[in-house]
Design a protein around this nucleic acid. Sequence first.
DNA 1: TTGTAGGCGTTATCAA
DNA 2: TTGATAACGCCTACAA
Lengths: 337, 337
Amino acid sequence: MTTIKDIAKVAGVSVTTVSRALNGYSDVNEKTRKKIKDIANELKYSPNVMARSLVMNRSKTIGLLVSEISREGAKDNFTFEVLCGINDRASESDYDIILFNTNTSKQKLKSYTQLCRERCVDGVILQGIKKEDPYLEEVIESDIPCVMVDIPITGESVSYVTTDNVDGAKKAVETLIDFGHRKIAMMNGHERAYVSGKRKLGYEQALQEAGIPLQEEWVLNGEFSEQVAEKEAYQFLQKHSDVTAFFCASDLMALGVMKAAKLLNLRLPEQLSVIGFDDILLAQYTSPPLTTVAQNKYQMGYAAAGLLIDRLRMKEVPPFHMLDNELIIRESVAKAP
Amino acid sequence: MTTIKDIAKVAGVSVTTVSRALNGYSDVNEKTRKKIKDIANELKYSPNVMARSLVMNRSKTIGLLVSEISREGAKDNFTFEVLCGINDRASESDYDIILFNTNTSKQKLKSYTQLCRERCVDGVILQGIKKEDPYLEEVIESDIPCVMVDIPITGESVSYVTTDNVDGAKKAVETLIDFGHRKIAMMNGHERAYVSGKRKLGYEQALQEAGIPLQEEWVLNGEFSEQVAEKEAYQFLQKHSDVTAFFCASDLMALGVMKAAKLLNLRLPEQLSVIGFDDILLAQYTSPPLTTVAQNKYQMGYAAAGLLIDRLRMKEVPPFHMLDNELIIRESVAKAP
DNA sequence: TTGTAGGCGTTATCAA
DNA sequence: TTGATAACGCCTACAA
């Protein structure tokens, strides 16, 4: 591999001059610069990122920390689409992405700071980290620039990107109310996810504004799982045949609810209306096609990387970036019977 | 951040000894080693990967080169599931993944070798690279250990992982033949993908062994796109109403074919049988549910990383690793009318 | 405008 | 069993 030494030798100058010429310093004769650049091209020089990082203490690398990245995520594409957004934005500014590989047990062996420092990453994007993950606290205290996806935490060096979960949920429930529904249950995800709280809040607000009393026992925990949601909904709908609509905090859970309804011979949407959250690919293929709140996952990733890169450039960045959700109307909602 | 210098100072030894103690060399007193290790723990030391890479010329990093990684891939999850497999396997051996970000135009600016060397990656996994990508030739000539996904190329330092595309396609077409079909069209992907050739070969072999003459004009190019496949199938089925079955080189294209059939008021599967390839999530939700050849994408990634890591450990590795495909029987195939 | 020299955190060579 | 010392490739005072 060519180094600046090689170039210096060929050009008959010192390595200092080569370094400065290549890095665009002004204090170098334009003729020398041209000569050096030509030689660099000819020799197919590209700087050794390791050496540079070592001395500069930055690496043009963004760490991506996805807690327990796994095939599970493949079902709703969330992780992947966010990743694509991050990747595209990073690429625009010539950052590379390094995938950190961690889970709750690994987090006990190596601290967040250690992980980042040893790789000299300039900043980090965190996704899917859970409330009980040991890293969470560390991230807040650390001074490594960081952007969280869907985790509303801010700090000296940390900001976040999210969609307006409260508003999204509210819009969904309002739609149900507009269709005349008054008995609306909610299939929520687990408490470990921050979005669960927000979506429940939206549900509550919509009910309240319509003067419908909240029934805590109508809010189920589907664990963000199709199976769990199906089981829960099955039991619930048997006991509460007066419920006419379900707002689900994820499309996957909405699928579960729909399955349960079919098992109970409820006609969709005539006897039970269902709204989901996410707009996964499947949503348009279910029968009936699922009305749902769409998140722009790609945009979340793109914005997250953008926020981080701005921060790395010492720009003033807002503490968070909130994207809008869009309600996609399909056919799983009908007038209340 | 703590360095070995800090440890050396506290332990009252030289950095050399610290380095050796921590790296498990035998020529260090066990008592000194214990002391050093304790101090390292206390100081939360972790080695600077950059510095180490610089001097060792290896970085415990695997480069992942996905040509034009994009949201397109989200539809069939192929890229993401392979990524998960790679990640899991890499994690087991403490490798990190760096996502290289490239496309045909970027490839002209920076050579493959440059890209790898400047990041000191120990090896590379390539996915989705096209026949005309400039890197392809470079990869073969380079001595950087490399594993390709679904690109049957071998060399001094390159091997590949794939599924048995010929056999998978053959099994699919044989199934159609078993159901009495004789007029079987194929919706293939574009020529730039290696798998297209293989799948077509399987189609041809099945036909030949059944004594059915091959009709070249019955092999369509759906570009691996749902829309294109739909358009092509629509035109084709109008002209060739005697065709009773379609073998598609991807599920996405199978969806397109099914749409076209529905537009032409063909009943599925009674009037037209369809088989896909991939087993994407959607396949079980179409109506009728799609019979298809399932590839184990996660396993491909896992195997690819495994092959690469073995090579990095100087193990003898086979030139390629072929995984089996499994035919998943659903309801889109019926007896020939 | 250019060059010399020192250092970033490691590992490796050689001598003690 | 240990310690100087020299790399690795690059950047940056400081001096010329």
